[in-house]
């Protein structure tokens, strides 16, 4: 389907239309930080946010999520019927991250006894969602999506692709759900040939602003080859294992499970966790397979660029650059990747 245009003045009406069926989320400001918040009108949207401080992952995989409640009578499944979720203004990197997470939570892991373990909490929210991406016309200096198969105007994981073209949004529906919502809206008009040409120009301008991509092909094999090399203690030397990179990462999916309550009444909750913490793998016996900081940093890098791609054929990183922004000791993942690729050439 061709592009349609939404006059920015009509965004509020469009959000209202969406609200009839969906809970709508969009970038907003909380305590000075940008994150995705539930909105009812366009006034609440923060249009200056680029890559939001917090990614939209938490909408579908909340920082703390109740799995079930329990009391003397047993276990009660947590309420899992929400209104479907629509997200306005999701950057390409974040939309892609949800596709990556969906392989872990949503895809059927087939066990040899034919059981498959899908995550009902994730599926209920993500499968029914409607995602409006927003193209990046001015990538940040920390952006490196183009190293990892993405790009500022990448459309993966979106139901509707949206380009900010000055006074109007140009919208391209990508999925059946996207086409349906576009067809049913009264706020849209057909885009002109000029509009479409502008969208193409904005895309190529944005791409030219990106740093030259690093060739990450074969990175997984390279990482396996240097698994036992001393490079890991060099890379991790300044890491303080604070976990900021993992908590700011839209693709990190590790969680802990905790029971919260008193006596026989309470909830079982899953909570975001981090492989940077020693307790993550600490066993009751006291044995810890990843006792050293270098082993934990290696795990994070290996998971993203070797293990996950081995299982799913794509790196578990979108190049959003948040870990680069938040690291208190400037441990820049891009430098790490460059170093790993260069190091391998010295060794082998």
């Amino acid at each position: 389907m061709n592009m349609v245009r939404l006059d920015k003045q009509k965004l509020n009406d469009f959000i209202r239309e969406l609200s009839a069926e969906y809970s709508v989320y969009a970038p907003g400001k909380t305590n000075g930080k940008t994150e995705f918040i539930p909105v009812e009108s366009s006034d609440e949207i923060d249009f200056n946010s680029h890559v939001t401080d917090m990614f939209p992952k938490g909408i579908f995989f909340p920082p703390a999520e109740v799995l079930f409640e329990y009391d003397e009578d047993g276990v009660r499944e947590a309420q899992t019927s929400h209104r479907p979720i629509a997200v306005w203004g999701m950057r390409s990197c974040d939309a892609r991250s949800l596709v990556m997470l969906d392989r872990v939570f949503g895809s059927a892991i087939q066990m040899p006894d034919n059981k498959n373990f899908q995550d009902p909490y994730w599926k209920e929210k993500y499968d029914n969602s409607l995602i409006f991406g927003i193209a990046c016309n001015e990538p940040l200096s920390t952006c490196f999506c183009n190293w990892l198969g993405g790009g500022p105007h990448n459309r993966d994981g979106m139901d509707v692709f949206v380009v900010d073209a000055g006074d109007v949004y140009l919208m391209e529906p990508l999925s059946d759900k996207g086409i349906e919502i576009i067809n049913s809206s009264s706020c849209l008009t057909n885009a002109t040939g000029k509009d479409e040409a502008l969208a193409v120009k904005l895309a190529s301008d944005a791409e030219s602003m990106m740093t030259a991509p690093l060739d990450t092909g074969g990175l997984g094999e390279k990482l396996t080859a240097i698994y036992d090399e001393p490079i890991w203690s060099e890379i991790s030397a300044k890491c303080v294992n604070c976990g900021a990179c993992t908590f700011s990462c839209p693709t990190c999916h590790c969680f802990d499970v905790q029971d919260e309550g008193k006596g026989k009444k309470g909830k079982r909750v899953r909570i975001w966790d981090s492989c940077m913490f020693p307790i993550f793998t600490m066993e009751a016996s006291g044995h810890n397979p990843r006792a050293l900081s270098s082993e934990r940093v290696r795990q994070r890098i290996m998971h993203k660029y070797s293990y996950y791609p081995e299982n799913y054929g794509e790196n578990l990183c979108t190049g959003c650059g948040r870990c680069v922004m938040v690291c208190p000791v400037n441990l820049d993942i891009r430098e790490v990747l460059k170093r790993i690729i260069a190091y391998k050439e010295q060794v082998i």
């Binding site: 939570f105 990190c252 590790c254 969680f255 795990q299 293990y307």
Partner: peptide, 11 residues
């Protein structure tokens, strides 16, 4: 069930 990311050895 392969979600929480904790018990891996390699991939």
């Amino acid at each position: 069930i392969g979600k929480c990311g904790r018990c891996n050895i390699g991939s």
